[in-house]
Each structure stands twice: as C-alpha cells, then as structure tokens.
C-alpha cells in the first residue's frame, strides 16, 4: 500500500499542504500517542484489529479527526465504531486496492484542502523523533543516519536549534536524517561522544541494524562523527552534507526486482 501512495506524484505534491505524520503501533511511546487521539486501541475482529496492516487518518488543523463520510470533525473515542469512522484502509471503498490506493487518498486530500486551505507560511520544522525507540526504528527502516542533539534539562541549545532549523539546512537534509533530542539521561554507550560534542554540538550515528530486543538501545550504535559547537547554519550544512547516507542500502537486492 505504501508503495503506491508514496511513489505517486500527486500524493507527494498534495502532501506539501498537509502535516504528515508516520508512526508505528508497537514502538514504545508511539502506540500511546495514537491511543491518545483515539486512532488505535480497540481490539477485536474486524477492520479495527491492530494487525500488521497499515491504515491512515486525516485530522483537521485543530487536531480533530475527520470522518471519511462528510469529513466531519469528531471527538475521538476508543471504540471500534469511532475508529472505523476515521480510519480509511478497510472502511472506504478503494482505499486498500492497489489500483485505487493513491487516487482514493488524493481525492480526499483535495476535498480536505478545500475545507482547510493552508495559510501561506513556512511549514518546515525539525522533525524530532518521539523518543530513542522511534529514532532507531525509523533510522533502521528508512536507511537514515541519526543526528543526535545533546539536550540538557532546558532542552536543545537555542543557538544550535536556530542553525538546525535554518531553511537551507532543513530543506537539504530533512529527508536524509533522523533527528533525536537526547534528554538529560545519557546512555553509557554515548557518554563519551556526547561529552566531546559539548551542549551546542551534534553527534552523527550510523544507521542501526534494527531495534535490539532486550539489550540497550544504543549497544551497537556506531558514532560516525562528533562535531562540537558552536555551529552556524553553514557549518552544520557542511557536516550534514558530508555524512548524508543516500537511500538504497540494498542496491544489490533492488537490482533483482
């Protein structure tokens, strides 16, 4: 399903007028986030089952889920009826069929944009990961390296944050990296690198091989670069240019398609 959607040019173009969120049930923290908004959480037989299957929902700009019929804003409830009214994959004709996945989604997106036309404002933000679990998941699955930003209790160093969110830096690298703010608890495996980076520097980690089952999340983390601050947008751009990993770790396999 994802393949038909993300590779669709119209979907990609329309997505620029949406705030797009991608997450996973089963990754610590992410499931709670979905439950909070009534998107998942009801088990049972039928389309509301939390299985391996992908699904999607639309929200209004003020965070109200939209029903697929009439695109009404609703208050989410953790019930199968509520979830079936907002989730598309199994309850909307054409939303799951390979031939119509993209057109069903893009038709809905156009209607939603008529109702909620976006303001003409810069819409770039640093796409912070929810937590270390989601960072490792997405870096591993999407073949991205991790930009690890040391953060004390007060959060990310303001000067570093300004440089990171500089449009020239973000436009170039928002798709290439997974961005993670490290809280005050520094894992032992990363302590040396984080101390060397200083509070206004960054650490670049190689794409992990996956989420470890029981071992420490960072046990096999490979530090590629430690870049102490202070950073300007230009110095960050230079660093990220150098360390970006192009997609396609399995170029050999993809050639056998």
């Amino acid at each position: 399903m994802e393949y038909g959607l993300y590779s669709n040019d119209e979907f990609a173009e329309l997505s620029e007028n949406f705030v797009c969120v991608r997450t996973y049930v089963g990754v610590p923290g992410a499931e709670a986030m979905l439950k909070q908004y009534g998107i998942v959480g009801t088990r049972g037989r039928g389309p509301w089952v939390q299985g391996n299957n992908i699904d999607y929902v639309f929200f209004s700009p003020n965070l109200k889920p939209l029903t697929h019929e009439e695109l009404r804003e609703v208050v989410p409830e953790p019930t199968e009826d509520s979830q079936n009214s907002i989730r598309w994959r199994y309850t909307v004709a054409g939303a799951g069929a390979k031939e119509t996945i993209a057109s069903t989604a893009t038709t809905a997106m156009k209607k939603i944009l008529e109702r909620y036309p976006p303001r003409d404002k810069e819409a770039m933000r640093i796409p912070w990961q929810l937590n270390a679990h989601t960072a490792i998941h997405f870096a591993s699955y999407e073949d991205r390296r991790i930009v690890l930003v040391p953060g004390a209790a007060g959060g990310v160093n303001p000067s570093l944050a300004d440089s990171l969110r500089d449009p020239a830096v973000l436009r170039e690298h928002v798709h290439n990296y997974v961005f993670l703010k490290l809280g005050p608890q520094i894992p032992n495996e990363l302590r040396g690198a984080v101390q060397q980076a200083t509070p206004d520097g960054v650490v670049i980690l190689e794409r992990p091989d996956g989420r470890p089952d029981k071992a420490s999340l960072w046990q096999s983390a490979k530090v590629l670069a430690v870049s102490p601050g202070p950073h300007t947008p230009a110095s960050l751009l230079q660093l990220l240019d150098k360390q970006a990993r192009p997609p396609g770790w399995d170029a050999q396999l993809s050639s056998t398609k």
Binding site: C20, P61, R125
Partner: peptide, 27 residues
C-alpha cells in the same frame, strides 16, 4: 516531509492551518 511526534506536528498544523495526514502500522 514526515513528522514523528504529534507535539511538533500539531503545533505546525495549528500554526500554518494545515490539515494532518497520519499513517501508521505495526512495527
């Protein structure tokens, strides 16, 4: 341009008047 936490995404949606598209599956 994906976002991964609702906090950042919701703030961006409110600030720019953009609706949200949320896609998810089981890891």
């Amino acid at each position: 341009a994906w976002h991964y936490d609702f906090e950042t995404a919701a703030e961006l949606a409110r600030d720019t008047g953009r609706p949200m598209f949320v896609i998810f599956c089981r890891a």
